[in-house]
Amino acid sequence: MGERTQVLALFKKLMRASRSFTHYNFREYALRRVRLGFREKAGVSDPAQIAELVGEGSKQLEVVRKQALISQLYPQARHVMEGTRK
């Protein structure tokens, strides 16, 4: 798998996992933080560095998945910023 494909695939998985937080503030933070994290490293070209970053990112993906699951297990009432349901 090409590096670029790998990185974009990881980004997508992290975004999907972040979206699954049921808690508004954690969800918004995770999305913001993932975007920020990937954009910060957009200029990195050294393959060894990229591999290391992808490794770290994969570890974070596991954390996000676990914690998003926990937030689903212990949901809370809707946050006022989540708007009205229709």
């Binding site: 979206r19 049921t22 508004y24 809370q76 009432a77 809707r78 708007g83």
Partner: peptide, 8 residues
């Protein structure tokens, strides 16, 4: 948007 249906 990131609005999520709350089950509560």
């Amino acid at each position: 948007s990131t609005a999520v249906e709350s089950k509560v």
